[in-house]
């Protein structure tokens, strides 16, 4: 139940947080929308002028923008299913009884990748994936695979980003799914294991229904983080070679920071934000418990 309290009290409790988020979250957005209607280039401030929806027209018809969007979607479509499959496997192993000490240790190690500074993850990739000095190629050599040019070849670089995303986020997915597994009432699980020897049947018919909330949470958060993905590719490949790893946030940063075309970058941002909000609304409707 909730209390009915005077409006003044509510305002006092909520006011500061709402005001703060409005100042840091909304004001810049409004400013971005305003700038997106201008030709506004930091190196040509003298030519600044109102251009209406011109920037939006340019973005919507710009193949580079949609290619970056497509690349971002592709990363999501490849990496997330692998993360879910591997994460589920890890979660199931950790969920089994026995070897408690070792499992606690493994759980602790799972915490590390997802907390790691994303920029450092990209730098680590540069060091470990180097064709000549990289330890990963050395390991591939042990099993008879020739050194792979991870950073220099467009396809390989994309694969490398996918691999690194999998490294960082599979543990996260595993822990979320493990939390989901722990919501399965133990009686039901035990009864099911007595009835069938097939782990698959137990998973499919007993555990899966309890995993649905976790899976949806994974999808929501991975979508948000993939759209935001900037630090790791930026420090690893800077979007290259060519534009093989230029994801949407990397593209916008380049337009704003290197072409100095803030108006265009703002238009791109607003379009991306619209896509984000539609997805967020959809997902949150689907899943999050509403405030009572």
């Amino acid at each position: 139940m909730s209390f009915r309290v005077p409006r003044r009290t509510i305002a006092a409790f909520l006011g500061p947080a709402v005001a703060a988020l409005a100042i840091v979250g909304i004001a810049p957005l409004v400013y971005a929308v305003w700038k997106s209607l201008h030709y506004f280039n930091l190196t040509k401030l003298a030519q600044q002028r109102f251009v209406g929806l011109e920037n939006y027209g340019a973005v919507l018809t710009d193949p580079v923008f949609w290619q970056a969007m497509g690349r971002t979607a592709l990363l999501f479509l490849i990496a997330v299913p692998i993360q879910i499959a591997l994460g589920l496997l890890i979660a199931l192993v950790l969920h089994r009884p026995g070897l408690t000490f070792w499992k606690t240790l493994t759980r602790l190690s799972l915490v590390l990748p997802m907390a790691t500074t994303y920029a450092v993850v990209g730098l680590l990739a540069q060091v470990m994936l180097n064709q000549k000095y990289g330890v990963i190629n050395q390991m591939l050599g042990w099993i008879g695979v020739d050194a792979i040019n991870f950073i220099g070849d467009p396809t390989n670089a994309f694969i490398a980003v996918v691999m690194w995303d999998i490294w960082q986020w599979t543990p996260f997915v595993a822990l979320v799914l493990l939390a989901g597994l722990s919501t399965v009432p133990p009686e039901i699980e035990e009864a099911a294991t007595l009835e069938t020897r097939s782990n698959w049947t137990v998973l499919r018919h007993v555990q899966l229904p309890f995993l649905i909330p976790s899976l949806v949470a994974v999808l929501i958060l991975r979508t948000a983080d993939t759209l935001k993905l900037f630090d790791m590719p930026f420090t690893m490949t800077r979007g290259g070679p060519g534009s093989a790893t230029e994801f949407i946030a990397v593209l916008i940063e380049r337009v704003g920071n290197r072409q100095f075309d803030i108006g265009m970058a703002a238009a791109q941002s607003v379009i991306m934000l619209a896509i984000t909000i539609v997805l967020a609304r959809l997902y949150i409707r689907l899943f999050y418990r509403e405030v009572r």
Binding site: K44, P154, G242, S243, R254, Q259, D261
Partner: peptide, 22 residues
């Protein structure tokens, strides 16, 4: 000229695409 920063971005993008055979 003042436009080089904008033009170099174009050359960088398409110049590498050429070399990659794209």
């Amino acid at each position: 000229f003042a436009e080089w920063p904008a033009i170099t971005e174009i050359v960088q993008e398409w110049g590498t695409k050429m070399m990659l055979g794209e």
